[in-house]
Design a binder for these strands. Structure first.
Lengths: 124, 124
DNA sequence: TGCGATCTTCGACATATGTAGTAGAATGGC
DNA sequence: GCCATTCTACTACATATGTCGAAGATCGCA
């Protein structure tokens, strides 16, 4: 499930609260994204075709619902980034994060904590 | 500096060793990427236009050199992912990484190892 | 019940992206 | 010097993406 940039905007708004109408989504788009109503409809149509979103009519109005979870979409995007820019491995990414100082001590600690929990709680 | 998927392939090959000719790059592309020579040339031309790559003629042959570092390109891609899919913050990504069962035990272990090393090696 | 507000469906169009063929110039070995 | 090989510069073209506008179907309220 590969989403384009514009599609991410729509999905983000939809995940926030759903089901939602095109109008709802329009109102929830970040300030600065000032798309025409029909632009949003076009995006939704394409997302429905892609099966990323479900559509049900209520009276004359379509109501939308995500069909892919945010988690799944994130995973897909994350994997793509990894494959494309980090040799497909988490290691180079973590190194990068460390060197770029993108990770604060707090975040690092949190990540470790959660990883520890993961490790014994449910190691595979 | 936003690179497309195909452009990443070229850049990855170029960063590997440079300067390099189109032919060099062609040989270094991952198996499975079997582009025609002219396809690679087209990509290179576009990358030069974008100032992502420098070009110098040697005889009748162009020799290419990256103009953006891998580090910079990675940062840009990483930022894009964050903005687009993770509310623009590292926190949600860290969470995601931790929660995601899709990460193999190996990757998790590696992550932890690096985090440990980072932790005492250089406090920030 | 009539009208403005709102929806929907279609079509359109520019730019971006992926992928490559052609034609002509330069090169190098014989 | 000549020819096959290899380059470069152009052009081309399909599909993807970002953005709507127009026209007609509906709804809800005065």
């Amino acid at each position: 499930m590969k989403l384009t940039e514009a599609e991410w905007q729509i999905m983000n708004a939809l995940w926030q609260k759903h089901p939602a109408t095109a109008r709802d989504i329009m109102d929830r788009l970040p300030a600065g994204v000032n798309w025409a109503y029909t632009t949003i409809k076009t995006m939704l149509t394409r997302l429905v075709e892609k099966q990323a979103v479900g559509e049900v009519k209520q009276g004359n109005t379509s109501v939308y619902e995500p069909r892919v979870s945010q988690q799944k979409a994130r995973l897909s995007a994350f994997r793509s980034l990894l494959d494309q820019a980090f040799d497909g491995a988490v290691g180079p990414l973590v190194h990068f994060l460390a060197e770029e100082k993108q990770l604060t001590a707090k975040e690092r600690a949190e990540l470790k904590k959660i990883l520890d929990r993961e490790a014994d709680g449910k190691g595979e």
